[in-house]
Simulated scan of single mutants.
Amino acid sequence: MPTISKKGVSMPESPIRKLVPFAEKAEKAGKNIYYLNIGQPDIKTPKVALDAIRESTIDILAYSRSEGSEAYRQKIANYYANNAIHVKHDDIIVTTGGSEALLFAFGSIMDVDDEVIIPEPFYANYNGFSTASGVNVVPVISKIENNFALPPIEEFEKLITPKTKAILICNPGNPTGYLYSKEEIKKLANIVKKHDLFLIADEVYREFAYDGATHYSILQEEGLENHAIVIDSVSKRYSMCGARIGCLVSKNKDVIKTALKFAQARLSPPTLAQIASEAALDTPQSYFDDVIAEYVERRNILIEELSKIEGVQVANPKGAFYCIAQLPIKNSDAFAQWLLESFDVDNETVMVAPAAGFYSTPGVGLNQIRIAYVLNTESLVKAVNILKEALKVYQD
């Protein structure tokens, strides 16, 4: 019998999606589920983006340029300029979601068995992207006790080897919601320049910064032009997850030239979705003001309600729309499955994402869950109450 590749066998399951069969079974049994497991916003996609699709007069849905249409890339560059990030349209390659941008970045700067240092917990698919690229993740652990702040630079330097090619951060962070300060970005900039590494920043949640804080992009840091690679996407910014449009941005011409070869190999990003994404860039600031106000309210209610539960510790996110909660249990995988299979309050239950899948260090995060506060406030309160009642009776 033919065998599956070693790479395929080692490819990790999604900690977010692997519980879907249990959720589907629970729904078929008549249970109502509050989905706290996945970052699919319930915020409406901007009307201007949807109208661009409805009003399109395209006769042939043809390929676009491999790097994305020039008009869209120019408009992206203008968007960045409005955010004090100065790049040219030819510093940008449009991709099929931020995921493809990460794969292009890994493929462009790393060879098999090279290493990338990532503060953990991190977006679970970083594990998958590294496996697909034959790259090794070297984790540096950030801790819930200090709200998942950047680990000391000394911890990064201990991990640097001749195989190290990059440091990767998500800012603001998924799954922690942590927003890196300007000072923390400068520390990272100094270390990548000192050791001649790349700094990759996944900045797809740039707009979602709270409590008066502002996002500081690695592309704003002077002297980092040859080191900085930004991953971006329309998915969360405009609640357009299904558009599958992202981009890779770098002032390093060799990186862009190399990434373009990967882009050419997959032909082009989705043409129709680029039209919607280009139109989305005309979304008024009032849209974001309303969205941010909504997420702040949700975050405050979620943190307040979780903090009332005995034995629960929760980090206070400063951006994005996720938080990590540490529960008085041993194994959140088993707990999450039990919630779907065996527990309900008035025929309602919750679906959470076990946090161990957001770490690459074995045995870490087993008693933690990631919560995406993408539900309305009433639903969040009900969902946390279900968690509270579940923890009263759950036995590991």
Rank of each mutant, 00 (worst) to 15 (best):
L366D: 08
A101M: 00
K318T: 11
T283V: 00
Q285M: 12
T3P: 00
Y373K: 04
S239W: 09
Y35F: 10
H215R: 10
S56R: 03
A26T: 02
G242H: 12
K236C: 06
L102W: 05
S69P: 08
L103A: 14
V381Y: 04
Y123L: 11
V384E: 06
I229Q: 12
S133K: 13
P46I: 06
Y180M: 15
S10E: 14
N147A: 08
D346Y: 09
K25W: 00
V291F: 08
G363I: 06
E221R: 03
E297H: 12
L168V: 14
D59I: 00
Y180V: 14
K236Y: 12
F104K: 01
K163S: 09
K251V: 03
T95L: 03
N83I: 00
T131G: 02
I303S: 10
Q395I: 10
S181F: 13
P119M: 06
N82T: 10
G177N: 09
Y63P: 10
P41V: 03
K182T: 14
V20D: 11
K7L: 12
L159W: 03
E183K: 15
V192A: 02
I117P: 00
K330V: 09
G319P: 10
K165I: 11
G363E: 05
E145Y: 01
D59C: 04
V135E: 01
A77V: 13
A356H: 14
E27R: 12
I369L: 04
Y35R: 11
I218F: 09
Q313I: 11
A29T: 03
Y373A: 06
V112C: 00
A124H: 15
K330N: 14
I169Y: 12
N331P: 09
P151I: 11
F106W: 07
P172V: 01
M110S: 12
K163P: 01
K253F: 05
V138L: 06
A276G: 07
R17K: 14
A101V: 02
K382G: 05
S233V: 08
V87N: 03
D396L: 00
Q285Y: 02
E155M: 14
A372F: 00
E297G: 04
L272T: 09
T214M: 07
E341V: 07
A325M: 08
L248H: 06
I160C: 05
N125W: 15
A315M: 14
D42I: 13
N32R: 10
L188N: 07
R298F: 02
H215N: 12
E120W: 01
S332D: 08
A149N: 11
I76V: 15
V393M: 01
E67I: 05
A276P: 05
L50R: 11
F129L: 08
A280M: 08
A383T: 05
I386M: 04
P354Q: 08
G242R: 05
A213P: 02
I58G: 02
M110F: 03
V112S: 07
S64C: 07
K25Q: 10
A336N: 06
V204Q: 12
A279R: 05
P41C: 04
E183A: 14
L339G: 04
Y322F: 15
Y178T: 15
E304W: 11
G319V: 03
V374G: 05
